[in-house]
Design a binder for these strands. Sequence first.
DNA 1: TCGAGACCTCACATCAATGGCAGCTCCTAG
DNA 2: CTAGGAGCTGCCATTGATGTGAGGTCTCGA
Lengths: 123, 123
Amino acid sequence: MVVVIVRIGELAARTGASVRSLRYYEEQGLLTAERDPAGRRRYAESAVARVALIRRGFSASLSSRVIADLLPLLEAECLPRLRALLDAERERLEAQIDAMTQARVRLDEVIAIATDPTWTCDT
Amino acid sequence: MVVVIVRIGELAARTGASVRSLRYYEEQGLLTAERDPAGRRRYAESAVARVALIRRGFSASLSSRVIADLLPLLEAECLPRLRALLDAERERLEAQIDAMTQARVRLDEVIAIATDPTWTCDT
DNA sequence: TCGAGACCTCACATCAATGGCAGCTCCTAG
DNA sequence: CTAGGAGCTGCCATTGATGTGAGGTCTCGA
């Protein structure tokens, strides 16, 4: 039996996540909680580390869906699939960065057009 | 009086924008159309270039709001404010690219954690 | 015993461009 | 004359993490 101590407000305070977010993480299957007789969530101490991991995932631009896929692999220490998943995400992120870099190029083109002294509205 | 010829379907075909998008551009104040007696949009030839410009803006990650601010300045050839606006947008884009690049760094950290052979679930 | 505060669920709002559908009018070719 | 196609408006959906608020329950301290 896991030692169940932490209530949601305290978990929020200790992790920096909002209470709303913690409930959302649970809804998305990222975080589980037991309930006390009044129906309130009680978290194990380990939830603090888990939330930290979840937030680290979010700050790495992972979606809740991907994090949900990730966590079981992490717990099973299934390195090959973990690598595959993370590499795919890294590729997605790279593609997004490339897209934005391309957008920047196009923005520079717009700047060039707009600030070209020979430009007229009909161009 | 501007020569009014083009109908929305033709404008869509000639610009690559969907009919839906053209109506949206109008709704956002990016594009104007006269109406024939039956209420259908009739565009001037110059609309083709304008839509191209609008789409160029979108592909440069500008929002419809920014493009709406941009176009009058472009027509007024008000270079200083144009520059200010575009520079601000470029800065915003840079910030986003930086954020995503930072996310990539954090993703690499997650990869490092996840694939560290000494890692355990409690970490 | 009462009030405050922490918690619960449910549900809607956000941002933005676009897709898609329903129900309608209108024009034109056969 | 009629069918079909093009246009019209208006509305809902999408994506996703989070904010926010209503309305209710529970618990503890004064």
